[in-house]
């Protein structure tokens, strides 16, 4: 075991993993995180806490992870390279590990111009691939970037993300290969709606032999409304929403029910793909739907390892 985290145990023992996402509050209330944690606790193997997602200031990912850990949840701490330089990142990793956090997900982060402090200075000292490399070095060589020794172990399970359908398509799998080479243990993909297209992408991933070197968790976003379907289709880069899904949402009597049905159909197809080792459910502001989806997808009970 590299880290001994629950997520690592689930994936390494060959189970189909389920992870969910917790957006921390725009405030200092521990209860908000705890409530989401309690709600989803028995329905997933690990929970991601986002790191100032869309560049909007929220409670820190590390703090959210600690709150989750206190109620028995295996947290995944997200780190974006937008807000911290290599000194702060390595320091935060040491602190996170000391507090029992084992899973780290490395991301570039949405550009600061999107957020609620658009006039700030982005850091971008290192990129997300170099962050993966850094964590591997800290864990395997017990060394900082500069080469100096770290005292003691740094047990980590290292994650990265990939957006299969973003441009330039022909380079995406190569970039995924770089993340794997850098040391990623697991990959979370951007949300999958066009399963046929995703299967084709995974064929290239398999041709490169990457599915044997890394655990790939496919992203799932339950669609709450037709407006959300249209928004993602038109505005979110790297998400490919087929017209058929938009039409189904338009024609549905109860949009939310149709959204759940679509998510379940997608999960069913993902489960059949041998090279997909789990799903990561991103129910943005709709966390209470996750138990319903996990249960109806036949993914209960979650393994106790």
């Amino acid at each position: 075991m590299k880290s001994g985290s629950n997520l690592e145990k689930v994936l390494e023992s060959g189970h189909f993993a389920v992870t969910a996402e917790v957006g921390p509050p725009k405030g200092a209330s521990a209860k908000v995180v705890q409530r989401k944690g309690e709600l989803l606790k028995t329905y997933c193997d690990a929970m991601n806490v986002t790191d100032n997602q869309t560049a909007i200031v929220r409670m820190s990912s590390c703090s959210g992870c600690i709150l989750l850990r206190e109620i028995g949840i295996d947290p995944v701490m997200q780190i974006v390279v937008r807000d911290r330089n290599r000194i702060a990142i390595q320091s935060d990793i040491l602190g996170a590990v000391a507090l029992g956090i084992r899973n780290i997900l490395c991301l570039s982060g949405d550009h600061q111009r999107f957020g609620n402090h658009p006039t700030t200075k982005g850091v971008y000292d290192i990129d997300s691939i170099q962050l993966v490399q850094t964590l591997k070095k800290m864990r395997d060589e017990k060394k900082f970037i500069c080469g100096e020794d770290i005292s003691g172990e740094v047990p980590l399970y290292i994650g990265a993300v990939e957006t299969p359908f973003a441009d330039p398509i022909e380079y995406r799998v190569k970039r995924l290969a770089k993340k794997v080479k850098a040391g990623a243990d697991f990959i979370q993909t951007q949300a999958v709606f066009d399963v046929a297209k995703f299967i084709k992408w995974m064929e290239i991933v398999r041709d490169e032999g990457l599915d044997k070197q890394v655990h790939i968790l496919a992203g799932v976003i339950p669609i709450k409304s037709v407006g959300m379907a249209r928004y993602m289709k038109d505005n979110v880069s790297g998400i490919s929403v087929p017209d058929e899904i938009v039409t189904r949402m338009e024609e549905a009597k109860v949009a939310k029910d149709e959204g759940v049905k679509i998510a379940l159909e997608i999960i069913e197809q993902l489960k059949e793909m041998n090279s997909i080792h789990g799903i990561h459910i991103m129910a943005v502001a709709w966390e209470d739907i996750v138990p319903v989806i996990v249960e109806r997808a036949g993914l209960l009970p979650r393994p106790v390892l």
Partner: peptide, 21 residues
Amino acid sequence: CAKSLMNGPCGGTNKGKCEIS
């Protein structure tokens, strides 16, 4: 690159344009 990335495009690239605009 708006993020000065060194190892390829982030997930924000969209039809050849940057996520910022």
